[in-house]
């Protein structure tokens, strides 16, 4: 059973990384940095609802580290880790009391927290509040992107539940 879990998590991590790399190849919609779909978060939201918190955290950590290595942009790791950490905590908290048809809402909240965490890290690291003016832009794009990835995750979770209802916890 444990090995089974490990394999599933590894598979999900690989899937998230593939989505992440493919998304990098999609040209940016706007020149504003940070505005992107974040398709790999479909996997994160899926894991939040299908696996234990610790397992999800491991998946996200592995994805962040490997993603930073693959893109060769290690300096961005601090920002993405701050965003992803806050996002994960928020989603795990929200998940406790929302039904499955509100998974998209959980994802939107995650996106808001993700962007807030990123900007927070940028303020601390760059020692300037100038980046704060980015937050509204990122929040608007994050809400829309979060809704999209959240709906993707919601459909996946509900279908997987029908397929294998007896799994997980």
């Amino acid at each position: 059973m444990k090995l089974h879990k490990l394999t599933e998590l590894a598979l999900l991590t690989a899937l998230a990384l593939i989505i992440f790399i493919i998304e990098l190849r999609i040209p940016d919609l706007t020149p504003i940095p940070g505005v992107k779909l974040g398709l790999a978060n479909i996997i994160t939201v899926y894991a939040v609802f299908r696996y234990r918190p610790g397992e999800t955290a491991m998946l996200v950590a592995a994805r962040l580290l490997l993603g930073a290595m693959f893109t060769g942009n290690l300096s961005a790791l601090l920002y993405s880790a701050a965003g992803a950490g806050l996002c994960l905590l928020g989603m795990l908290g929200v998940k406790r009391f929302i039904p499955q048809r509100y998974i998209w809402l959980c994802s939107v909240i995650g996106a808001i927290l993700h962007n807030t965490g990123q900007i927070g890290a940028a303020i601390v690291l760059m020692r300037t509040t100038a980046v704060l003016t980015y937050l509204p832009v990122l929040l608007v794009s994050g809400c829309i992107a979060g809704l999209f990835t959240g709906l993707c995750a919601q459909f996946t979770v509900i279908r997987m539940e029908k397929l294998r209802p007896d799994r997980h916890e």
Binding site: D28, P31, P33, T71, A76, A122, A130, V131, T133, Y134
Partner: peptide, 25 residues
């Protein structure tokens, strides 16, 4: 830097959208 995000932002126009280079602060 490898990502050139700041270069891609183009000309500085809006007050609320500064050109930011995260790696070089």
């Amino acid at each position: 830097c490898p990502d050139h995000t700041c270069v891609n932002m183009g000309v500085l126009r809006a007050e609320n959208l500064p050109i930011v280079c995260l790696p070089n602060r």
